[in-house]
């Protein structure tokens, strides 16, 4: 009898210890980024592009990377949304859950979710070579939109799946076509959920480095067209950390802080939306 209790208590102790350990690693990571990033932070970091000698420790900031990241991640999100939303509506409104097409597509998206971002980068790059494109904003947008596609569409799918069948029936009973039902009823009903999916995908995209390393390139200038290369925050962090100069490395910490703040903001926003969304759902 006692032995059962001892065993249970040992395991319970281990469980609490690993929960605490995992949570403290989160605290440690965010804490480190803030502690190292804040002292290196300055107004010029977010308002200026790198001046000559920036990578030797001279003047400038990472505005080029911030803007570049927003362009590439924003464009990728938009492109991905243009593919995801119609697809998810199609899967939920036009075909049955158990149809071969639906099962196959969902499975294939789940598998796509697991593909490493470096593979997206390599694949995106070989498409660009084939099309004769150079590293550019457009290349980054294409690679990121592919990376975001499974994340965004599966998140939307989860939300739209929760729409009760009665709502579809009510719309059809009024004589609406499938398209009208999808756009006017389903999208409106699940809008916060759809936005959450978009934000989650944006957050993943803006933080990803391996897929843009080939496709977007790097430059100190803010791009003015889709066909120019652009800097991105993750790569700016990577390059600055790779220099032998402590001053520049500190800028990497500041850039990491900027990126982390963006990600946290997006994550908090999506959580608020999710809360609001689930509140409206009748279970």
């Amino acid at each position: 009898m006692d032995k059962r209790k001892i065993e249970e208590n040992i395991f319970k102790g281990l469980m609490i210890a690993s929960t605490v350990m995992i949570l403290s690693s989160l605290a440690l990571i965010i804490g480190t980024v803030i502690m190292k990033g804040l002292p290196a932070m300055s107004m010029s970091m977010i308002t200026q592009t790198p001046k000559g000698g920036y990578y030797l420790g001279k003047e400038g900031g990472v505005l080029n990377a911030i803007v570049g990241s927003l362009y590439v991640a924003g464009g990728g999100t938009l492109l991905s949304l243009l593919i995801s939303l119609p697809m998810v509506l199609f899967l939920n409104v036009y075909v049955k859950r158990t149809s071969l097409l639906a099962v196959f597509t969902r499975f294939s998206l789940d598998v796509l979710w697991g593909v490493p971002s470096i593979v997206y980068g390599a694949f995106g790059f070989s498409i660009m070579l084939y099309l004769g494109l150079r590293a550019s904003v457009l290349g980054g947008i294409i690679a990121l939109s592919l990376l975001m596609l499974p994340i965004m569409s599966r998140a939307m799918d989860e939300v739209i799946r929760m729409v009760p069948q009665e709502l579809f029936d009510a719309s059809y009973a009024l004589g609406a076509t499938k398209l009208e039902t999808a756009v006017k009823v389903i999208v409106r009903q699940t809008l916060p959920g759809i936005l959450t999916a978009v934000l989650i995908a944006f957050g993943r995209g803006i933080g990803d480095a391996a897929s843009v390393i080939f496709t977007t390139g790097f430059t100190d200038h803010i791009p003015t067209s889709l066909f120019q290369p652009a800097a991105t925050l993750p790569l700016a962090i990577f390059f600055q950390l790779g220099t032998p100069f402590p001053e520049v490395q500190e800028r990497a910490y500041a850039s990491a802080l900027i990126l982390t703040v963006i990600i946290l903001a997006v994550s908090v926003a999506s959580r608020i939306l999710t809360k609001r969304f689930t509140r409206n759902i009748v279970k």
């Binding site: 995992i22 949570l23 690693s25 989160l26 440690l28 990571i29 965010i30 480190t32 980024v33 957050g203 993943r204 803006i206 933080g207 990803d208 480095a209 391996a210 993750p234 790569l235 962090i237 990577f238 950390l241 990497a252 910490y253 990491a256 990126l259 982390t260 990600i263 946290l264 997006v266 994550s267």
Partner: peptide, 15 residues
């Protein structure tokens, strides 16, 4: 814990 999944890999690298 889900937040841990949102942190970019480059930030993990810096850390």
């Amino acid at each position: 814990i889900d937040l841990l999944a949102g942190i970019p890999s480059v930030v993990y690298g810096v850390w």
